[in-house]
Design a protein around this nucleic acid. Structure first.
Lengths: 296, 296
DNA sequence: AGGATCGGTGCATTCAATGCACCACTGGAG
DNA sequence: CTCCAGTGGTGCATTGAATGCACCGATCCT
C-alpha cells in the first residue's frame, strides 16, 4: 500500500534512532527523509520526534502515531484477507507467538489440522517467552499469542485459558518414578534440571520453593525445553514440564508425574489477542479451533 | 492528512456514483481520478467498484475498504486529539447525534456545563431520528448517539440507558389535566397531536393502541416536538412527549401527566457509540458526564 | 438514428518529491 | 584546547509520478 510509505519510514527512523541510518536502509537520502518527516509533522500539527545531539527519538506524540499506524496496517491486512475470502480464494496468513512448550506436539497438530481444510492459509509461528509475546501483540507483529503464565498487560484480551499443572519428567528407572504424585521437596532433594528464569514453569517453581524456604538449584539450567526432555534420559535428574508439551500417551520413553498441587499451584495457559482488534478471517477461524482444542 | 487523499476521493466517488461527477467536485479531471482508482485497485489486489453503464457503484470489497478508511480517519482524529491534550492545549471536538427531545433542555445544559470547564472543546449536535442516528455512528460521522428507542444495530454499543415513560402534555384547563395519571384510551378519545411515524414516542403509542384495538389518529401529525409543545396551548388537544424533553419544574405553562405504564410501557433513552471504537479524549469525557447526568 | 453520459487510454506537461552540496551544531578522542 | 565524525537542517537544480487534454468505444434514453 503506497499511501502509508511515510508511516513505514517513520517506523524505520524510530527503530534506527537516526534519520540518516534509516534513509540509507530505505535507499534514499537523508535530506529527502528529513523533509518527509518535517512535512508530516507540519500536517499532523505536532513534533513526533525529539531531536537529540546524536539522532532522534520518538516523543509521546510519536508513540501514539506509530501505534495508530500499526493498528491501521493490521486492519488493512484484515480487509485484504476478507476480500480474498469473498473472492473465493480462501487465502490467509496466521501469525502466532507461542510458548516453547507448544512446539513439539500442540502447535504442529493444530496447524496441520487447520491446513488440511484450508491449504491456502500459511502460518508464522514465533517462539516468544511470556513477556515478549505480549510485546508482539502490542506491536501487531503477531495476531495471536498462546503463552504460559503471562504478565497480563492491559492490552491482552484473553480468548481462552486452561490450567496446566507443573509435572516432573523422569527416566523410568528414577527412584521417584514409582510414585503417583511427587512432592516438590523430593524433586529439590534430587538433582534437577530446570528452565532458565523468565519462563513460566521456573517462575512457579521459584515461588513455590521460596514458600517452603527452599531454593531451586538446578544442575543444568537451560532455555530449551527439548534439552530438558532429552537430558533426563542421560542422567538421573528430575526435569519439569507442563502436560501440553508432552506426548499424551507417554511413548517417548519418559515418565511423567504431576507435582503435588498443594506444593506448586497449576499455571494458566492463555490464548489471547490484542484488545479490540478485529482479526482477519483465517486467524479468527484458527483461534476458534484452538479454543475448541484447548477445551478438550 | 495528505496520505488518505485517495480514500477521500473513493468516498466521494461512492457518494456521487460517478467518477466524472466526483472529479468535478474535487476540482480535477475524470481521467486523473479514474487512474487513481485504477492504481489503488491494482495495489489493493481487487476491484472496489462495479462498473455500470451509467457510472460506478461500490462492490462488497469496496464497502470494506470504505469502512476501513472511516475507522482509520476517526482513529487519526483521536490520536490528534490526544496529542493536543498532552500538549496542554485541551482542545477537541465532540460530534453527537441525538433525538429531538433532547434539544430544548438536556443537551444545552450538558454542553454548557462541559464547556464551562473546557472552553476549547467545540460541539456539533446533529438531530437524527433513531434509524439515522445509528447510520451516523456506523459511518463515523458522529462519535456519540443519544436516542430514544433505537432499532439497536449490531454495531451500537450501549454506554448507558434510562427508561422514559410517555407523558401526555396538556393545557392546564384541559379536562384531563385534573387527573394524576391518564389512561391511553382517554387520550385517544380526545383530539390529539402526535409525532410522525418513525419517532420513538409514536412507535410506542402505535404499538400500545394496537394492543387495545385502537388507533392513533392525530388531528395534527408533525416531525417537530417543539410544535407539539406549543400547539397544545392553542387548541385543547392532547400532546405526547417524554420527560427529558420537558422542563422539570413545569414553568412553561404546560401540564404534564404520565400515561399509565400498564397502557404504554416506558421506552428507553440510550447513549451509545460505535462498537469497538476508541473515542477521542474530549468525547470520552463528555460521554462520562452524560452517563452521570442521566443517572441522576 | 442521434445525442448525452459514462469509463478508459495515449501523450504532452507540470509540480511535488528527491538528490546534491553544504551549513551549523554536538560530543568525544587525542 | 583542536579536530573529527556524526547528526539534523536548508537552498537549488533535477526528475518522474500525477495530472490535464483530447479522444475512443460502449451504453442508455429520447
Amino acid at each position: 500500500m503506497r499511501h502509508m510509505e511515510t508511516f513505514r519510514l517513520i517506523e524505520a527512523v524510530a527503530r534506527a534512532g537516526s534519520i540518516r541510518k534509516a534513509a540509507e536502509d530505505a535507499g534514499l537520502t537523508a535530506s529527502a527523509l528529513n523533509r518527509r518527516i518535517a512535512r508530516f509533522e507540519d500536517e499532523f500539527g505536532a513534533r513526533i520526534f525529539e531531536r537529540l545531539a546524536r539522532g532522534v527519538r520518538l516523543n509521546s506524540a510519536g508513540e501514539l502515531v506509530l501505534q495508530h499506524y500499526r493498528a491501521q496496517r493490521s486492519d488493512m491486512a484484515r480487509v485484504q484477507s476478507q476480500v480474498a475470502d469473498l473472492k473465493g480464494v480462501r487465502r490467509g496468513h496466521v501469525t502466532i507467538a507461542c510458548s516453547q512448550a507448544l512446539l513439539p506436539y500442540f502447535m504442529p497438530e493444530q496447524i496441520a489440522r487447520y491446513r488440511r481444510e484450508h491449504p491456502g492459509v500459511t502460518f508464522a509461528v514465533k517462539v516468544r517467552d511470556r513477556a515478549r509475546a505480549e510485546e508482539e501483540l502490542a506491536a501487531m507483529r503477531s495476531d495471536l499469542a498462546l503463552v504460559f503464565e503471562p504478565e497480563l498487560m492491559v492490552d491482552f484480551e484473553v480468548l481462552h485459558q486452561i490450567p496446566q499443572p507443573v509435572c516432573a519428567v523422569l527416566a523410568p528407572d528414577h527412584p521417584l518414578a514409582a510414585r503417583d504424585e511427587i512432592r516438590l521437596r523430593d524433586c529439590l532433594d534430587h538433582p534437577h534440571i530446570a528452565p532458565a528464569a523468565g519462563y513460566g514453569v521456573r517462575y512457579l517453581l521459584d515461588m513455590a520453593a521460596r514458600r517452603g524456604s527452599r531454593q531451586v538449584e538446578p544442575v543444568v539450567e537451560t532455555e530449551s525445553f527439548e534439552l530438558i526432555r532429552h537430558y533426563v534420559l542421560h542422567e538421573g535428574v528430575v526435569g519439569f514440564q507442563i502436560p501440553i508439551g508432552l506426548r499424551p500417551g507417554g511413548t517417548s520413553g519418559l515418565t511423567v508425574r504431576p507435582v503435588a498441587a498443594r506444593d506448586v499451584p497449576p499455571g494458566l495457559m492463555l490464548l489471547g489477542q490484542m484488545k479490540g482488534r478485529v482479526l482477519p478471517v483465517a486467524t479468527s477461524r484458527f483461534a476458534t479451533q484452538l479454543v475448541q482444542a484447548l477445551g478438550e
